[in-house]
Design a protein around this nucleic acid. Structure first.
Lengths: 146, 146
DNA sequence: GGTAAGCCTGTACCCAGGTACCGGATGCAA
DNA sequence: TTGCATCCGGTACCTGGGTACAGGCTTACC
């Protein structure tokens, strides 16, 4: 029962080999057993964990947050404490805010296209087109433009 | 007619002083005149340009794209060539795609909350909750998770 | 003309999330 | 046992968008 080698795990999860070691350093992936010569031998669950990490990243969690989620995830099953539930709710609010933000941006872009505006600085300087460049710049001081 | 000093421009535009020089290096901000001693003296338009840059960033353009827009913007006024118009359309498509993406993510998060799911790996392993973690991971191979 | 604030250049560093390269050791099959 | 693919640890580098610091010059005001 030798376990999976790094490249097998990496391939199965669709990530780079180096990423495995990176995640290990970051505390997202448990240190696996080693062969006598020191090669990593992963259990099959490692692939699942990697897929979960990638999924959680897609849900907008940072690697630190994912590490946290994975660490507190297993051994608190049933306690309705501030676990995945809470965090998912928080993240949902963030994602919804980002959607709203992007919708403003999309309608601004649509306005720019509709107005036939073609020179950014001229438009911002005079009142020649309906795009409130200065307003946008001022109106969103810290709106997390990630 | 001495012009504005760097810190005045930076303050007026709400950016860091260093950012001015950074933008100058990146080609977003024209090199201003200098005083005899070598201090930068900006024209008033510089503030507008900075605001435009910040606005364009908020619209989803990278600094390279903004530099491009500013460079090609001024001296082609009237020609319906691939200028701001084209780029705004392209960017609009990107932004709309990102919104759609985030909406999938939001509904997934809502499903996680609704289902009371609390352990990522367990959920991904068994079929205990309705969140298709593996599917998400597989189903979005290159969906620009910026 | 003195002094403090402001600006200069150049370089280094920050964040996240990886990726690449190196020289050497291992694993495995023929 | 030989030979090649793979893996090891360590370190350096990448993108994007800045920010900080050091050491020295300029400007402005009294």
């Amino acid at each position: 029962m030798s376990g999976l080698r790094s490249s097998q795990v990496a391939d199965a999860a669709g990530v780079n080999l180096q990423t495995l070691r990176y995640y290990e350093r970051r505390g997202l992936l448990a240190e696996p057993d080693r062969s006598l010569g020191g090669h990593r031998l992963y259990p099959a669950e490692a692939v699942t964990v990697l897929k979960v990490i990638k999924a959680a990243q897609r849900l907008g969690f940072t690697l630190d947050e994912v590490a946290d989620l994975l660490a507190t995830g297993g051994h608190r099953h049933g306690r309705p404490d501030a676990g995945l539930q809470e965090r998912a709710k928080t993240k949902l609010v963030e994602v919804e805010a980002k959607i709203a933000d992007l919708q403003v941006i999309a309608s601004t872009l649509r306005a720019a296209v509709a107005a036939g505006c073609d020179d950014l600085v001229a438009c911002a300087g005079q009142q020649c087109c309906p795009i409130p460049f200065a307003t946008i710049a001022l109106g969103a001081p810290d709106a997390d433009p990630r």
